[in-house]
Simulated scan of single mutants.
Amino acid sequence: MRAEPTWHRPTSIHPTASVGADVRIGRGARVGAHAVVAPGVRIGPEALVAPSAVVEWDVPALAVVHGSPARVRSYRHDRYVDPASPLCERHGVGVALGGAATPGWVRRLAQVGQARGTLTHAHVGAGLPFTVRRVMVVRDVPAGGHRGDHGHRTLHELLICVAGSCDVLLDDGLGCRVVVHLADPSVTAYVAPAVWTAQFNHSPDAVLVILASAPYDPGDYIDDYDAFVAFARTTTSS
């Protein structure tokens, strides 16, 4: 799959686009030719509204929306990742869980194939990158739907697609932004604190299991992308 390029441009609205009243357009967002944006819509930072799209609902940060009505088709990223390849210098692929894993956004669970079926497994506290305190299951995401669109201050998460497939955006707020395709339960996406994530492009049968390091705490969420970037920079410099 071809990666969306990264643009470093100011907010741009094509002169043929029609933008309704009270529309808020975030930093670095772009609205393409002949696009229509309904009144009151919020377009997040660095989002891209494709030409001729008809936007009736808010567009999350970094999202790429197409169609009428517009739906999230992708997120702006620098690389679409084969889980077996390095992501970038800062976030290399972790080794198989159960060993001395290096910090990485893609981690592999141990897997045993047998004639009677395939077993994928990990040991909590001995192989997982954190102790699991909460489990969530996401399924029945409609076509064009998306989940996440936030970062965390202290929470760790491990995303496992146990059926079907989906794509996961991972962004450290410092210039490394990738999309990882999950289609094998032994390949997981590790979302550390100060990483922005979104899940999208779910297949109709997708079932995504999310393991989390702590109970639900609304104060740990960062839902504004610009605030997240500021937090990520502060965290890195401290």
Rank of each mutant, 00 (worst) to 15 (best):
R116M: 09
V191P: 01
G26E: 05
A70V: 07
G104N: 01
A198V: 10
H152G: 11
R76V: 06
V65K: 02
T188Q: 09
R71Q: 07
I160A: 09
A47F: 05
R107E: 08
P129A: 04
D149G: 06
L109Q: 00
L62T: 00
L119S: 08
W196A: 13
L155A: 12
Q114W: 09
A198S: 14
G151K: 00
T234W: 06
A227F: 04
D184L: 07
G40Y: 02
L158Q: 03
G144L: 12
T120P: 04
Y190R: 14
L128A: 01
H8D: 08
A61G: 00
V187M: 10
L159E: 11
G32S: 14
P51N: 09
W196F: 14
H150N: 13
H121L: 12
C176K: 09
E157C: 03
V178L: 09
L159C: 11
A194I: 12
E157V: 02
T102E: 15
L158D: 03
V180I: 11
Y225H: 02
V178Q: 04
V37P: 02
A230M: 08
A126V: 10
V106G: 00
A212G: 13
H8M: 07
L48A: 09
A38T: 07
P83K: 03
G94N: 09
A63E: 03
G98F: 03
L97V: 05
A84M: 12
A29D: 13
Q111A: 11
A232D: 05
V207T: 15
V93P: 06
S186V: 12
C161M: 10
G117V: 01
D223K: 10
V59L: 08
S203M: 11
T118I: 09
D205Q: 12
S165V: 06
V180G: 03
V187C: 09
P5C: 01
A100P: 12
V138H: 05
V132K: 04
A21C: 10
V179W: 00
I43R: 00
A53H: 08
A47D: 08
V162H: 07
V41E: 04
T102I: 14
P60W: 00
S203C: 12
A47R: 03
G67L: 05
